[in-house]
């Protein structure tokens, strides 16, 4: 077993996913099989190999801190699931 049901529950909490019991069980089986396949990578010797996070060489890209777009508050807020005037309504975050 690469991944236990308990680990699946833990990862689901980290990922903020409220998974039903049957979903957890199905995922445990699927992830187990996928992770077992991923172990194939251990056949390759990667000692001394640099990790690659990007296909093209990138350096920091800087620009002047200048506003170039027009605020479109209403267009943005029209997508909000809950709105109060020009504000988003969200659940209470401070006790």
């Amino acid at each position: 077993m690469k991944i236990t049901s308990e680990e699946v529950r833990h990862v689901a909490t980290l990922a903020r996913l409220d998974l039903a019991q049957d979903e957890q069980e199905r995922l445990a089986g699927e992830l187990d099989r996928i992770l077992e396949y991923m172990d194939k990578l251990n056949e390759l010797d990667t000692d001394g190999v640099e990790p690659l996070s990007h296909a093209v060489d990138v350096v920091n890209v800087l620009r002047p801190d200048r506003v170039v777009n027009q605020p479109r508050t209403d267009a943005l807020l029209r997508n909000a699931p809950a709105r109060d005037d020009d504000f988003l309504r969200v659940p209470k975050i401070i006790e």
Binding site: L17, L27, L31
Partner: peptide
């Protein structure tokens, strides 16, 4: 998130979070 995402997206979020 549980209601909004489909099966495959959840699978990849779970896999990604795990690794």
């Amino acid at each position: 998130r549980a209601q909004g995402f489909g099966k495959e997206v959840k699978r990849r979020i779970m896999l990604g979070t795990y690794v």
